[in-house]
Design a protein around this nucleic acid. Structure first.
Length: 659
RNA sequence: GCCUGGGUAGCUCAGUCGGUAGAGCAACGCAUUCGUAAUGCGUAGGUCAGGAGUUCGAAUCUCCUCCCAGGCUCCA
């Protein structure tokens, strides 16, 4: 047979000569495609353009401006990065260098224990550009395990990977490209990398990249392994795409809650208090209070009861709950009293709620019993992990624990999930998916049957919820599996929001019981759930989601009234008083500066409504509205009409930008 | 906790070779009275994160500590 037939993505057949490659196929389709092509996908697997095709293959040509294409570009860029580093640091060991979201990285061990500095980034980047300019072809070769070990005998990390593959370690297969063979790429005789590929045909196809940062990273991600030197980069199919990505990073930086929190005078982290411990300023305090009040009100309607518990407790409580066994390292060290008694700051509220459950005999008639608390907890986060309001050492959870029977469990979980989603939507988050985290290997309590039952119950709830859900194997808490609600924000990032955890263990540990209709003692199920996660973190996510332009109902200052001249100030105060009577947070700024200057200031503070009053308004009892996000003011609106509009907007949780 | 980088006025930043601290904005005062994103002039503001060392002399060089950023690990 001198011809083969392959199938294109649209289903159309294509006839080629025997031994044709994917590149030949691209050429047969069109010169532009052939010029653009960087790899191929054959029967669902990415391969080099030079790979020979077989009869019956389903083939698509991969071009740079696609997910597959970018992955190839990034992977090849990582390869060039390693080549550049070995040129600049002869004797450097290179470990792994995958494509990642938006870019790539490569891990190295430099001779003499050297580290990369920020300045090295520019040197490495220049060397990479030199390699790219040299238009070096990527050539694939296959070796046996033995040959591979010999080839990389000076590269201990590569040897370790090959040995792992030889032992059949699945995880490492992806690095080498086969069961018992070693796949390599070289683009000059002097540089060979262990790699499954595919790669672009030559280094000349690369170039729209930028090295972004250096970092330490543990070999194979294990803290006990040596720390390697990692270089991160980003790579794209075109100059515009690269510029677009860099622009997006800037956008994200602009809406960083830490930056906005300082600019809008919402909160701060005084260094004299300590890392990860925030104070809320009056303006941030208003946002927080409104969030909490709304949450309280919704919980009340939904049948929750409100409880309070102290911030510290004797060790006994956390011994019983298992926290001191499983999570002592995440807790602040104990305060030791004179009598030798150990007291701990609480890292979680559940054991306290359990003591409330146990305060007296409980009947099945009381279940489900839903206890809610804005509970402040303290966790000893490692020094390198604290991050603004999203990862702190002291936080307030909107925490609730539901005690129910096994029979009630399914209904209660569904009800809780719906409640959670509904409330998140009220805060303007609409794009969700669910994640189901299962038993963590090696650090879980309870029997296999209990875990299986709990995981099955949560899976059913996820399936019935009618929204996308994904598995997170091993991500559960030590006492039970959990559903977490992941929400996408305005710029497409996902955040873990609410969690719903099912817990058979804590009631066991505390020997909690209720009296069933048949007069027997039964063990309740406990459902842990936090909606905001932590109030602090949720506020941070809202600030970033809205880029500081919070919906009016959450804004610390909803209206700022400005007189045109200072003889309008009296009227401005009258207007403000009327608006305040309607519950609108309103302030006046006296006319000591030019109007334009005061408007600018209010806009920079992201106040939803700037109200301007002048001669005409004083005469007619009206005002002028300059809404956030617009530049054309509305004149001559009566005070009453404006107040009505705003009261309605607040009730609907809307904002001026999206009425 | 680990790696890299950083910390100068409330904020953003400049500060040369080691020679004794500077701008803009903000604040405050005075003048200005203005119809939709920056009025003018003036004043004040600093243990250069903290400590130790080298030096005749340290924001600048060395060491330690604290704090911040980006990663790694972690995230009940």
């Amino acid at each position: 047979m001198s011809e083969i037939k392959v199938e294109l993505p649209d289903g159309s057949p294509r006839t080629l000569e025997v031994d044709s490659t994917a590149l030949d196929l691209a050429r047969s389709i069109g010169p532009r495609l052939a010029k653009d092509a960087i790899a191929a996908k054959v029967n669902g697997t990415l391969t080099d353009l030079s790979a020979p095709l077989s009869n019956g293959d389903q083939v698509s040509i991969v071009t740079p401006a696609s997910d597959d294409g970018r992955e190839v570009l990034r992977h090849s860029s990582a390869h060039v990065l390693a080549q550049a580093v070995t040129r600049l640091w002869p004797g450097a060991h290179y470990a792994i260098g995958p494509a990642i979201r938006d870019g790539f990285y490569y891990d190295f061990e430099l001779p003499g224990g050297a580290h990369f500095s920020d300045d090295d980034l520019a040197r490495v980047e220049a060397e990479m550009r030199a390699i790219i300019a040299e238009d070096q072809p990527f050539t694939r070769r296959i070796y046996s395990i033995e040959e591979g070990l010999e080839l990389f005998r000076d590269q201990p990390f590569k040897v370790e990977i090959i040995e792992a593959v030889a032992r059949g370690n699945e995880e490492d297969l992806s690095e080498t490209g086969g069961d018992s063979v070693v796949s390599t790429y070289s683009n000059t005789p002097s540089f060979v990398d262990l790699c499954r590929g595919p790669h672009v045909p030559t280094t000349a196809r690369l170039g729209h990249f930028q090295l972004t940062r250096v970092a330490g990273a543990y070999w194979r991600g294990l803290e006990t392994n040596p720390q390697l030197q990692r270089i991160y980069g980003t790579a794209w199919e075109s100059k515009d795409a690269l510029a677009g990505h860099l622009h997006q990073l800037e956008e994200a930086e602009q809406r960083d809650h830490r930056k906005l929190g300082a600019e809008l005078d919402l909160f701060s982290f005084p260094s004299e208090i300590g890392p990860g411990l925030a104070v809320f300023h009056p303006r941030g305090g208003i946002i927080r209070r409104v969030m909490e009040e709304y949450s309280r009100q919704r919980h009340e309607v939904s049948g929750y009861e409100f409880v309070y518990s102290p911030h510290i407790t004797k060790a006994d409580l956390f011994e019983t709950s298992g926290h001191l066994t499983w999570f002592a390292e995440g807790m602040y060290p104990p305060m030791i009293l004179d009598e030798g008694q150990h007291y701990y700051l609480k890292p979680m509220n559940c054991p306290f709620h359990m003591t409330i459950f146990k305060a007296r005999q409980r009947s099945y008639r009381e279940l489900p019993l839903r206890m809610f608390e804005f509970g402040s907890v303290y966790r000893y986060e490692k020094s390198g992990v604290v991050h603004g309001l999203t990862r702190v050492r002291g936080m307030t959870q909107d925490d609730a624990h539901i005690f129910c029977t096994r029979e009630q469990m399914g209904v209660e979980l569904t009800r809780t999930l719906n409640f959670v989603l509904d409330l998140l939507r009220d805060f303007g988050l609409n794009d969700f998916y669910l994640e189901l985290s299962t038993r963590p290997p090696g650090k879980a309590v309870g029997t296999d049957e209990e875990w299986a039952e709990a995981e099955a119950a949560l899976a059913t709830v996820c399936q019935d919820a009618g929204i996308e859900f994904v598995m997170d194997p091993g991500g559960g808490a030590f006492y039970g599996p959990k559903i977490s609600v992941q929400a996408k924000d305005a710029i497409g990032r996902t955040h873990q929001m609410s969690t719903i955890q099912l817990d058979f263990q804590t009631p066991n540990n505390f020997d909690a019981t209720y009296v069933a209709p048949d007069n027997t003692r039964q063990r309740p199920i406990m459902i842990h759930r936090a909606l905001f996660g932590s109030v602090e973190r949720f506020m941070a996510i809202l600030i970033e989601h809205y880029a500081g332009n919070l919906p009016t109902w959450l804004c610390p200052e909803q209206v700022r009234v400005l007189g045109v001249r200072n003889d309008h100030d009296d009227y401005a105060y009258e207007v403000a008083a009327l608006l305040r009577e309607r519950g609108l947070r309103t302030h006046v700024e006296d006319a000591t500066e030019p109007l334009g200057s005061r408007i600018r200031k209010a806009k920079l503070e992201k106040i939803p409504y700037v109200v301007v009053v002048g001669d005409e308004d004083v005469a007619a009892g009206t005002l002028g509205i300059n809404a956030r996000g617009t530049n054309d003011p509305e004149r001559g609106v009566t005070v009453g009409e404006f107040a009505n509009r705003l009261v309605d907007e607040v009730a609907r949780h809307a904002s001026p930008e999206a009425p």
